[in-house]
Structures are given as structure tokens and as C-alpha cells.
């Protein structure tokens, strides 16, 4: 199975799934192993959906980059007061954190930095 990031598990839909799985495990309805399989499937499904179904474009301009960090191929930014637009619709945000994984899959990422 191709590798997919677990990154999206912390999104609201990922959290909702993890919580649901936890409930089921707690009630001994499913095993943790099975829950892991579901999560792996989720990693795949969400990644593919984002890639294929979403067409929106977003821009962040003129924000103040408060913090940046690059570790283990993961970029983390904290942006203050970005002028943030999604499909020309402005979203007022005073602070946002960006966690970004390499779009090259981990296997291929080695040669790139």
C-alpha cells in the first residue's frame, strides 16, 4: 500500500473518526488493530479527495511570519495577520498555524530538501 500522511488525522473529520473509533474500542466492539486499518484507509481517502475533488485556491499575503520551523521534512509556520483569501473571499484571521508535509511522498523525498 502506498504511503499516505497521517497529517489529516488532526483535522476535524480525522478527529471525529478517531473519537468514534475510540468509542467503539472502548465498548469492545472493534479491536485497536481494526481501528488502525480504518485510520490508514482514512489517510488514503482524505488525501485522494483533497487531491481530486477540491479545486479552490487560497492565497496568504503580507502576513508576518512569526515562526518557521523545518524538521523531518515538515514545515511549520505561524503567521500573524495574514491577508488571507480563498477563492477571492477574504477570511479574517489574526493568527494561523500552517503544518505542511512534503508533497513528494516520503520515499521520494530523500533526494530533495
Amino acid at each position: 500500500m502506498t504511503h499516505y500522511y497521517e497529517l489529516y488525522r488532526r483535522s476535524s473529520i480525522g478527529v471525529a473518526l478517531t473519537d468514534s473509533l475510540d468509542e467503539l474500542i472502548k465498548n469492545a466492539r472493534i479491536s485497536p488493530q481494526l481501528a488502525m486499518k480504518v485510520l490508514l484507509q482514512f489517510d488514503k481517502s482524505i488525501a485522494e479527495s483533497l487531491e481530486n475533488k477540491v479545486k479552490h485556491k487560497a492565497t496568504f499575503k503580507a502576513g508576518h511570519l512569526h515562526t518557521y520551523r523545518f524538521c523531518d521534512e515538515v514545515w511549520t509556520f505561524i503567521i500573524k495577520n495574514p491577508n488571507f483569501k480563498l477563492e477571492h473571499e477574504s477570511l479574517p484571521v489574526d493568527k494561523i498555524k500552517i503544518v505542511a508535509c512534503n508533497s513528494k511522498k516520503p520515499g521520494e523525498a530523500e533526494n530533495k530538501n
Binding site: 477540491v54 479552490h56 485556491k57 487560497a58 492565497t59 499575503k61 503580507a62 502576513g63 500552517i98
Partner: peptide
């Protein structure tokens, strides 16, 4: 979003 560009 599918694509996002940031300038900071």
C-alpha cells in the same frame, strides 16, 4: 484548498 500560495 487545492492550491495555496503564501508570501510572508
Amino acid at each position: 484548498f487545492q492550491k495555496g500560495n503564501g508570501d510572508f
